[in-house]
Design a protein around this nucleic acid. Structure first.
Lengths: 344, 344
DNA sequence: TCTTGTTATTGGATCGATCTAATTCGAATC
DNA sequence: GATTCGAATTAGATCGATCCAATAACAAGA
């Protein structure tokens, strides 16, 4: 065992300083890469730190210094691949900045989110990136202000005009979907939803309605589809027998689209020829299913990275004005959409 | 603004104590739910904490107390749904125990993993759950010992006989797959792999080889398939034209199986009739693709929860013997497997 | 020689909690 | 009445870093 530490086995800055023949203060300066310390001294101290296996104690440091280089990330769901991709984007960007992620799952509940935020504050996180649970109210933003806790909203926002936000242009994406179908000759287009109601939902719906209105189409064909790969057969049937006889459907996300497509196929409908389906998000699944899904790509990894950048810039310049980064979607045409039958 | 805090805006335990007319020490006992404090005093202090909006400072606490109630989790990949499910299982179990997760992604690199572990130790995590990057060596376990850092391996292990480990019976799963195919009359069975080589890979291969040997079958049909939904057409073709004329294939995971199935279908082969395919993991995708995938279920969420339980028990009883929790797999028969043609 | 200035280093106070050992205060026992 | 005991509380030291103001060392300029 190496020299000179007294009891607990933990090597402290004092041990390093003594072994290097300098004071605690100087050793501290070396760690923080201060330019005040002479090169020769720096080299010597670093050599000793390495030899003794010194580990910085962030807890002790954050008592006096403001920063902990730790960021809290709160998502409503971890198993949804969309959030997993976004999380990966956040983690990557923060890791590159030398920060580390404290993760928690609010499970779509404001109550959970409250205790999570508490635990994160106890750990002294420098800031948080939150995709708010559906029942979180606007007061969260003023609370964060009061706590002096930098907070970035991602994917969903609880206020139209306050706070940093990184998301995607859901409305624009829906417009792309509608216009794609219209250009293929479809006039009777359904919108399939399901799952929690939040800003990301409302924006998609608004985009759909507005695009439909611009083409003077009836936007009243809606259908509720349970999320997940099961249960869609019934939905497919009810969609086919809808009184408005839709020839195409735009889905809330790819999972739902894949489920509906399977339901249709099982009913003998040729998806992409007899009926068109557009997904949303363009996850890996879109390429995996047959027929391949036409989908609106939203680049979740990019959104996550944007959120991380927003938080980092906020930490650097606490006083800067609020920003929203909205990334644009892209239509990816595959096999699940085709020209409408001439009769339609 | 509430009363009695001096400068930084942060409410400290001292503020609480003064406002409640007790000493710091007593207030501290209240937080830690010590039975030493009188009920009346406890009530009073809690009321004040609530009123002043007191937030516990874990960093300060962990300087004297041993615990930080924080656990590090290291995975090699976040976008793979399998790991996402496992992470969700870990997070859930730890959250229930009042702990919080510090997350990082080693991106299949030992070098990344090293800096991550460093950062986690700096934060004073109570322990770590690691799915080691493929090039991590056994010395990690002795390092962790030296650091007195409880470490649980999950999904992959870097030592056969040392350390806590939670995983699944990959070999048994492969045996289930082989026996399912054999019972359907298949004699010429291929094994499709790709991606990094690690213990989870080796165990699957060993299970395949041993089960094949038990049925006196030739286990030499192997094929490398690039991971991901693309690039499988070529693999499907080379599999069909393999000199041994396989009638079935067992895949390393569901993603690969879905890709191969699509490749086969595109070549006009009827999967489930002309050719059988077995996946591994039984992700949601298995139900989503057509034909639905026969797969070996591995329950990643359960594995994650087991890993969390191992760590919690290790924290409670540091001296206990090492444990390995191996959960069993389950064969889920769907449409991608069928009886072999009589000629085979 | 004496000041001035620059560069490098340092001791001591401090952050907010916990730990230890000591103290208070009644009630029970001798 | 003195002593013992247990329950409840507390002062003061402590954890490992950072901040601050002071200082040492040495070169340059008056």
């Amino acid at each position: 065992m190496p020299e000179g530490h007294q009891r607990s086995g933990r090597v402290t800055l004092l041990d390093v300083a003594q072994a290097a023949g300098v004071s605690r203060a100087t050793a501290s300066l070396v760690i923080r890469k201060s330019p005040l310390v002479a090169n020769e001294t720096r080299r010597k101290v670093e050599e000793v730190m390495d030899r003794l296996g010194y580990v910085y104690n962030m807890g002790a440091a954050s008592m006096r210094a403001a920063r902990s280089n730790t960021v809290g990330v709160i998502v409503p769901n971890l198993t949804n691949p969309f959030f997993a991709e976004m999380l990966a984007g956040i983690e990557q960007a923060l890791d590159d900045a030398g920060m580390i992620v404290v993760l928690a799952n609010n499970r779509e509940s404001a109550a959970n989110q409250k205790t999570i935020l508490q635990r994160m504050r106890e750990r002294g996180v420098d800031g948080v990136i939150v995709c708010p649970a559906r029942d979180v109210r606007t007061s969260l933003l003023s609370k964060a202000d009061e706590w002096q806790l930098p907070l970035v909203q991602v994917l969903r926002h609880i206020s139209e005009n306050k706070g940093d936000y990184a998301g995607t242009d859901y409305a624009g994406g829906m417009r792309q979907a509608v216009e794609h179908l219209v250009s293929l000759g479809h006039r009777s287009i359904a919108f399939a939803t399901g799952g929690p109601v939040h800003s990301a939902y409302r924006e998609r719906l608004a985009g759909f309605l507005s695009a439909m209105a611009d083409h003077a189409l009836d936007p009243e064909i809606r259908i509720e589809v349970p999320l997940g790969p099961f249960g869609s057969p019934a939905s497919a049937e009810s969609l086919l027998h809808h009184s408005a006889r839709p020839s195409a459907v735009i889905c809330f996300n790819d999972i739902m689209a894949a489920g509906l497509a399977n339901g249709m196929t099982d009913l003998g409908v040729r998806v992409g020829q007899d009926f068109s389906i557009v997904g949303f998000d363009d996850l890996a699944e879109a390429e995996l299913v047959r027929p391949r899904l036409t989908s609106i790509a939203t680049f979740p990894g990019e959104i996550g990275a944007n959120a991380a950048r927003l938080l980092l810039s906020r930490l650097q310049t606490p006083g800067r004005a609020d920003q929203r980064i909205v990334s644009l979607t892209r239509l990816v045409v595959r096999q699940s959409t085709g020209a409408a039958a001439p009769g339609d």
